[in-house]
Amino acid sequence: MKARIQNIRSLSATIKHITLAPDAEDSFPAGAAGAFILLEIPGPGRVWKNAYSLVSGAGRRQYEIIVRRVAQSRGGSAWLHDHAEPGQLLEISGPANLFPIARAAQKHLLLSAGIGITPFLSYLPVLQRQNAAFELHHCCKLDEQEVFRPLLPKAPNITLHGSRNSLDLMTLLSAQKLNTHLYVCGPEAFMDVTIAAAKRIGWPDAKIHEESFGGATGGASFIVKLARSAMELHVAEDQTLLEALEDAGLAPPRMCRGGACGVCELPVLGGLPDHHDHYLSAAARAAGKSIMTCVSRAKTPELVLDF
């Protein structure tokens, strides 16, 4: 599906708000709160496919996303920051939703950090319209407070934490009742700390909802051997395993490209995977019997996959 860049607004030197409009059709497919789209971003000799959360649930006349320029960007977010202009056409797919609002929850506790606020921006109007019980705590760096403040409605249950110490995570989590679901979105370290804290006080897995796109930051190159396809491929430093498979003309399973959905899981026959996803359980990671090709790499010089 084609989308035209309608507007680009800088929220800060590294964060841009981008509005997309349908090119041929009158409207886009509706995306519920928490949905994301995949953007195909043209690069020199290749195409980046990045997942971005829709930040406004309302209206199918446009999709709105917020993009942070990633310091170690492999190219996608840097292109959107440096080369994207209103009027340009991009190929997009979706929306899909791996992070919906839990219907069974009687209260929603939303915890985000940095650019992880984006899915919650689509939650807020829905939760407010439903008059749902919720709390949002957004953490950011001190110098980014003024970037995020205008994005958040002023309300007693919405708090912006501009420094590391202002959110007492343990106290907040421990004070929640049995009827509360937890949603976490942000950088890997924030996700890990928050989810570990919740589990330590007995939060059941089914009430912890998480999403984090990213991790596809590149790394050391390695060789992947494909047992069924009888192929041997080189995965470059700035290339993901999934991209290496696709560049070789294969059609491996994939969807979100951000380590969240679990669709791209492939069985590992040899070598040690270096997991960067948010899908596999701790036990499955340790077992090393499967890998999410979109974000994970190899700890060994070679990886053998059943594909």
Partner: peptide, 10 residues
């Protein structure tokens, strides 16, 4: 009791 108990109870 359940309406007042914090999360983590089984």
């Amino acid at each position: 009791h359940l309406a007042r108990e914090p999360v983590g109870l089984r």
